[in-house]
Amino acid sequence: MELIGLGRRYGTRLALDDVSLTLATGQTIAIFGPNGAGKSTLLRVLATLLRPHAGTARVLGRTLPDGGWAVRGRVGLLSHEPLLYRDLSPRENLRFQARLHGVGAGRVEELLDAVELGLRADDPLHTFSRGMVQRTAVARAVLHDPELLLLDEPLAHLDPAAAALVEPLIGAASGRTRVVTSHDPAGGLAGADVALGLVGGRTALLAPASDIDVASIGALYR
């Protein structure tokens, strides 16, 4: 993954301004920054949901937005919204998306077990707690075994046990290239190879995670 001078506007406001970085396959980048810093926008651009307005973005060997069609289906996005229909059950939601991605029903059952939703897999999602919805969303994000994971605060709403449950799917051990946003400096840095700090859409910090201490990340929020 390689970004050169990436920019994205919302109206006349710059949500992302001149962001450049490279990330090798299998590595993890942790993104920090206050609300509205452009973290989610960056993830949506990488997921091909938003077009870049400036600069170049190469993702999985393809240039966006023209190569977007080849990137789709190879990235998994876990965003703030679960991207699931509230009136359908986890099983129905996952089966629907599995068909869109050309994935078999066996994978759905495998994931429902992995996030320990087997027992309630047929209840509609709107009866679930936020944590259980998030677990379903994790299963959805990795359904098609994506090479690149885009995770927007993946552990939000999850208790420690549930966080441990999803770790093999979306954690550093999953072996996937990962872009992770976080508000937790220590936790975010732990599994990361590179750290990026965004403030107002601009790069405020970019360094190997091992060179950065928790305090310098805390400084981003001031």
Binding site: L49, L77, L83, L84
Partner: peptide
């Protein structure tokens, strides 16, 4: 409305179809 408010559009756009 369901697609817009529950992210169905995004989920669909992420699929290679």
């Amino acid at each position: 409305v369901a697609d817009r408010e529950e992210g169905g559009f995004d989920a669909f756009l992420l699929a290679p179809v």
